[in-house]
Design a protein around this nucleic acid. Structure first.
Length: 261
DNA sequence: ATGCCGGGCGAAGCCCGA
């Protein structure tokens, strides 16, 4: 069994204590991080390596940045999404993990937010998700277990947001964003959490503002999307709300799944 | 209609996030 988690950490340097505490407590095999908000050289590698993890880091000054932590040997396969436009934003890293004599491909994904919808950020988001779909389609040809995990900045349905009406024109909930996410799913991917948890109103993000955490008002925007070969091996999945309740938390909390490789 | 909160950067206040 291998456990894979995804967590938008909102600055890995500010949250290094939270991260190491959680790694010691939960001992996930693979962790996909987003919004590390530091250069690759600035990543607190020693603290993580001391806990037995190998690292794949794609950093950027101030914003974005993604990483993969793996207790098993890992080979980096890509440090950006293929595409004609080199945008310089650190939003994708992909690796192959060798675990228990088997191979698992994982990607840590930080999709653009897309707000405000009237700005060029929204078409950038939609184009980025289309690029992700194109790449996922190529990877699926290998017919191997893959976990595409990360902060998609898409709330898939009205069941995944506390106030659907209030959020309907936000880039996270707009029909164009949801359609882009469905086009990805329709390649044959499985939303690991939703496959095992049909209940509505389970969230991975709560805004710092307006007491959203205390009110239980969040959104489900962090997802683990599984290739068919991974979905066939899905044993468990859940959202771990623990880290969101700590002092000075990230505004996101981890989502995880277990695969019987 | 906008800010609320919070991080980075850099040393005040702006940019960005969701």
């Amino acid at each position: 069994m291998i456990r894979v988690a995804s967590w938008n950490i909102n600055s890995v340097r500010t949250r290094i204590g939270h991260l190491t505490d959680w790694l010691r407590q939960e001992k996930p095999d693979v962790v996909l991080l987003q919004e590390i908000k530091c250069l690759t050289d600035g990543f607190p590698s020693l603290e993580i390596e001391d806990l037995g993890y190998n690292l794949a880091i794609v950093g950027q000054r101030s914003y974005n940045g993604v990483a993969i932590l793996s207790r098993h040997p890992m080979t980096v396969e890509a440090d950006r999404l293929p595409g004609p436009a080199e945008d310089g934003q650190a939003r994708y890293v992909e690796a192959v993990v060798q675990a228990e004599g088997k191979v698992l491909r994982v990607a840590s994904i930080y999709a653009p937010n897309g707000n405000p919808v009237a700005s060029d950020k929204f078409p950038y988001k939609l184009a980025w998700l289309a690029r992700l779909r194109d790449h996922a389609r190529e990877l699926l040809r290998f017919e191997e277990p893959v976990v595409f995990g990360g902060d998609y900045n898409v709330c898939p349905t009205d069941d995944d947001v506390y106030d659907p009406e209030g959020w309907q024109d936000d880039a996270l909930c707009r029909t164009e964003s949801r359609a882009a996410f469905r086009r990805l799913i329709h390649l044959g991917l499985t939303d690991a959490f939703r496959a095992l948890h049909p209940e509505p109103h389970r969230y991975t993000f709560w805004d710092y503002q307006a007491g959203r955490w205390q009110r239980g008002e969040g959104l489900r925007i962090d997802h683990l999307l599984l290739s068919p070969q991974a979905a066939d091996r899905l044993g468990a999945a859940d959202i771990d709300k623990g880290p969101r309740g700590k002092e000075k938390p990230s505004d996101h909390t981890p989502v995880w799944c277990e695969l019987e490789l």
